[in-house]
């Protein structure tokens, strides 16, 4: 190369230094990189700050009762969000959770005369049945989950409305066991429904991480063709996911009816979109394949505290809604900003 003069000027030493710096940042990362790799820490941080701000407006949150009320209200949301987490990990969503919950809780209260165990079994049966229909439609008949579950919600509303004049007619009486679990206190600030929530959390966090079903749920969300070629029957996985989603929705509905002590055909509907929001804020990808329930738990707590804060602000309901929406968007956006950088660069 003697006949050419090098023009581009950069030395190997400089480049080596730059690269070494990048590697050092990864191997012994600075606070920003570290945070990006620990989304749960970031979310916990957001929760603590939000809680502190809310305390400034409402110091009852420092009392045993205040803490208890947050946990009590977060529980049904977190259970609905558990449904969404499972569905979203496969790249789907379940917009029929609220109607499934209403239906299941109504059935349990209406059929309480048959004894608590039968009534409970019927309520859970409603959840499983609705989930099975959703799962078959999405898994076997390849209906888009969004469309299928919106349709299902609408069908359920119709079924309940018609049922009220026939087989669901008559008095409703929330079961004692549901009432106790839904509104009782375990000890100090811990409500009884926390027992159910903890159980669900353990099953989901451990199950997603180290069970065969957990693995295939992530796999289906990541690449369905690869699943098929690996011999995984995708429809079985989707069926299982939507059945679990329906079951969780029914449990959430029962817990809510236990807390309020009554049932109604649309009483949990306001939880539907927050359940999706809690999952997204918790870091589960809408497109499937990444995320988990730990983030969702924090997402549900964050939204519950946020709700409390907004209620304490002396502004109109409309403005409250706008603020809520903006904050949810900001949280989701900053989450992607913080953790999404590697996704954009990719390659190698």
């Amino acid at each position: 190369m003697s006949d050419v003069t090098p023009i581009a000027a950069a030395t190997t030493e400089e480049s080596t230094q730059v690269v070494a710096e990048i590697v050092r940042e990864t191997v012994r990362p600075g606070w920003r990189t570290r945070l990006a790799e620990q989304p749960a820490l970031v979310l916990a941080g957001v929760l603590v700050v939000l809680y502190a701000v809310t305390v400034w407006k409402d110091d009852s949150l420092l009392t045993v009762n205040g803490v208890r009320s947050i946990l009590l209200l977060a529980c049904p949301l977190a259970v609905f969000a558990a449904s969404q987490t499972l569905c979203m990990l496969t790249g789907g969503v379940d917009l029929s959770v609220a109607m499934t919950a209403n239906f299941a809780a109504y059935v349990a209260a209406n059929q309480s005369g048959r004894g608590p165990w039968i009534a409970l079994a019927m309520a859970l049966g409603v959840g499983v049945g609705v989930g099975a229909v959703n799962g078959l439609a999405v898994g076997v008949f390849k209906v888009n989950p969004l469309i299928m579950t919106i349709g299902m919600a609408s069908v359920l509303l119709g079924v309940v409305t018609v049922g009220l004049r026939g087989w669901l007619a008559g008095s409703t009486d929330v079961l004692d066991v549901v009432r106790t679990v839904g509104s009782g206190t375990l000890i100090g600030p811990l409500p009884t429904n926390l027992l159910v929530w903890t159980g669900i959390s353990l099953v989901l966090v451990l199950g997603l991480r180290s069970s065969g079903l957990g693995r295939v749920i992530y796999a289906v969300g990541d690449n369905q063709i690869a699943c098929r070629l690996a011999g995984v029957r995708v429809w079985q996985v989707l069926l299982a996911v939507y059945v679990l989603s329906g079951l969780l929705a029914a449990i959430g509905g029962l817990l809510f009816s236990g807390t309020t002590g009554s049932v109604g055909v649309d009483q949990t509907n306001s939880y539907l979109l927050p359940s999706v929001a809690a999952t997204v804020i918790g870091g589960t990808s809408i497109l499937g394949g990444t995320g988990g329930y730990t983030g969702t738990i924090l997402g549900a707590l964050i939204l519950t505290v946020l709700n409390r804060l907004l209620l304490r602000l002396e502004v109109s309901e409309a403005f409250r809604q706008i603020l809520y929406g903006l904050i949810v968007l900001a949280l989701a956006w900053s989450y992607v900003r913080l953790t999404g950088q590697k996704v954009r660069e990719g390659g190698g």
Partner: peptide, 20 residues
């Protein structure tokens, strides 16, 4: 001397700890 059509000099790129 003919100028080169393309010349790169000490080009470097790392993806996290993986130096490409």
């Amino acid at each position: 001397t003919t100028p080169l059509l393309l010349e790169t000099s000490a080009v470097a790129k790392a993806f996290g700890a993986v130096v490409a």
